[in-house]
Nucleic acid binder design. Structure first.
Lengths: 189, 189
DNA sequence: CCATTTTCTTGATTTTTGTCAAGTAGCTTG
DNA sequence: CAAGCTACTTGACAAAAATCAAGAAAATGG
């Protein structure tokens, strides 16, 4: 079983046959550090699965980069709205490290339902999980201080904190690098 | 055409036949100001469509109510995660005004696909729209000041500001009522 | 391995926002 | 209409976070 199949299996509990057929729609690809998977303004025509490495999702606001999220191993990534409605993407998606991904084209993605009859149901449940995570994230902004948000993310995503420049994490949390640095110092004492 | 049918039509572009069949799965209901559509800890077994009135969605954090959102006419509302996974709801949903809603039970909701073959596709696109709105909201927290967030919401949701106690709007925006009051004063000058 | 660049930390200061307390305005209801 | 709520505003102050500037530490690339 490839890693992609393993992940598909753990997320979606397909049976072996379907697994192979679906994963055959993906093709493996590598990106070098600094390469873009997607640029704002372009159309998102693919969805990718991250096999290894880190992908930073950010927007450009008056020349300042605002990091929306950093996706790592096991994530599915696309600008969903751009993928489905063929509108321009709002996000840049750039490799923070060398990156191994599996890529599926829009047309093939839309064909998964033909292979797996219960795909629409499965997909809905997957989207619902993402929904919950986004709700939690919104809730963290309206109900927590900067310090609490830091811990909230840290507890859920420890791995990130060793691998990623803190300035990006600060941006994800809606605070400055200086603030995150001071929160960290507190922890050590 | 009832209002529900009108809205279903505008959101989903069903044809007339399907429209009638789907809307027949909903039953009309009224809630009085202060009544709960859902309480945290309970299971969400229904989805509702708001015909008129305002429904406040909030959580209780150590005795303090944090308003997550206020839904108004034309909104579909449920704790999606609780509805689909039958987990306990995280939100209270309380009528801010007398409320006319159309309610559909989980079982009937899950049956829509039998009536409208392309429902799963339609539902996915609807969820994707919600996704985009949540992404925008998250982005407002990581990239805007309190004042900018205020305007961002105000431009998109003017109607709310006349109908809803400002303290709830403040909470949705992640700020105190005093801060919102000061932002407002600035506008007048 | 050294030079350069990038990232992180720290301190001083300013700005923003929260907290507390008091007062006002506007509803609601008996 | 008056009493009692509730919501809103305001001011004084405190706390949190941003900004600016400088320097330290770490990573990167020849």
């Amino acid at each position: 079983m490839t890693d992609l199949e393993q992940y598909l299996h753990s997320y979606f509990t397909f049976d072996q046959d379907d697994l192979v057929k679906v994963s055959a729609l993906f093709r493996k690809k590598t990106l070098n550090k600094g390469d873009y998977f997607l640029k704002a303004g372009r159309q998102c025509n693919q969805l990718c699965f991250i096999q290894s490495g880190l992908l930073r999702i950010y927007a450009d606001v008056d020349g300042k980069e605002v990091t929306q999220w950093i996706s790592s191993q096991g994530y599915f990534v696309a600008d969903l709205s751009s993928l489905l409605f063929q509108t321009p993407s709002r996000w840049y998606m750039q490799a923070l490290t060398n990156l191994e991904i599996f890529v599926i084209e829009r047309a093939d993605y839309n064909r998964i339902g033909e292979i797996i009859p219960k795909w629409p149901e499965t997909e809905k449940l997957f989207l619902a999980h993402c929904f919950t995570m986004m709700e939690d994230r919104i809730f963290s902004f309206i109900s927590m201080t900067a310090e609490e948000r830091y811990h909230f993310l840290f507890e859920r995503n420890r791995a990130l904190f060793n691998q990623v420049p803190l300035q990006y994490i600060a941006s994800m949390l809606g605070m400055t690098p200086e603030t995150i640095s001071r929160i960290r110092r507190k922890q050590l004492q």
